[in-house]
Amino acid sequence: MSSSVEDRQEKIKQIVCEILEIDPDEVTETSLFAEDHDADSLRAIEILAALEKQLGILIDQQELVRMVNLRGINAVVDGVLAAR
């Protein structure tokens, strides 16, 4: 994995942890935001908006169903960047 991908994934993790108000050590690639970290749908929209702003991308709100953990978010962001 290139350092730019790793940097982006680390930035995504920081964004998620800040919005969910959790320690980075508490979240894994597969931990579920709603079930494991008590996130609600408003938090999911906040994450989407923060990603768009900080990464300079547009994410279709229909992708929220895939954005349930870090792995899902990374896949969505990778897809958006690949479609550019």
Rank of each mutant, 00 (worst) to 15 (best):
S2Y: 12
S2Q: 15
S4H: 12
S4A: 13
V5M: 14
E6P: 00
E6K: 13
E6Q: 13
E6H: 07
D7T: 13
R8D: 12
R8Q: 14
Q9R: 15
E10V: 02
E10M: 03
E10C: 02
K11W: 01
K11V: 03
K13T: 09
K13S: 06
K13F: 00
Q14V: 03
Q14G: 10
I15V: 13
I15Q: 05
I15L: 07
I15Y: 07
I15H: 07
V16Y: 07
V16W: 06
V16F: 05
V16P: 09
C17P: 11
C17T: 10
C17I: 11
E18G: 06
E18V: 09
I19Q: 04
I19Y: 03
I19V: 15
L20W: 09
L20G: 09
E21R: 14
E21N: 13
E21K: 14
I22R: 08
I22W: 01
D23W: 01
D23M: 05
D25C: 03
D25E: 12
E26S: 08
E26D: 10
E26R: 12
T28D: 04
T30I: 02
T30G: 00
S31C: 04
S31A: 05
S31F: 02
L32F: 00
L32N: 02
L32K: 07
L32E: 00
L32M: 02
A34H: 09
A34C: 05
E35W: 04
E35G: 09
E35K: 15
E35V: 11
D36M: 06
H37V: 07
D38K: 15
A39P: 11
D40Q: 10
D40T: 10
S41K: 08
S41R: 11
R43K: 07
R43A: 01
A44F: 04
I45E: 00
I47A: 01
I47K: 02
L48P: 08
L48V: 14
A49H: 06
L51K: 04
L51Q: 05
E52Y: 08
E52I: 05
E52G: 08
K53F: 00
Q54V: 01
G56P: 06
G56T: 04
G56L: 04
I57H: 04
I57Q: 03
I57T: 06
I57C: 05
L58I: 10
I59Y: 14
I59N: 15
I59A: 13
I59W: 14
I59M: 14
I59Q: 15
I59H: 13
Q61L: 01
Q61C: 00
Q61N: 04
E63A: 12
L64E: 10
L64N: 12
V65C: 11
V65T: 15
R66K: 14
R66V: 08
R66F: 11
R66Q: 14
M67C: 12
N69I: 03
L70V: 12
L70E: 11
R71C: 09
R71H: 13
R71L: 13
G72S: 11
I73C: 05
N74Q: 12
A75I: 05
V76H: 06
V76W: 01
V76R: 05
V76G: 06
V76K: 04
V77W: 00
D78Q: 15
D78A: 15
G79K: 03
G79C: 09
G79S: 11
V80I: 15
V80G: 05
V80A: 08
V80S: 07
L81T: 12
L81C: 11
A82Q: 13
A82L: 10
A82P: 00
R84S: 14
R84K: 15
R84W: 13
R84F: 10
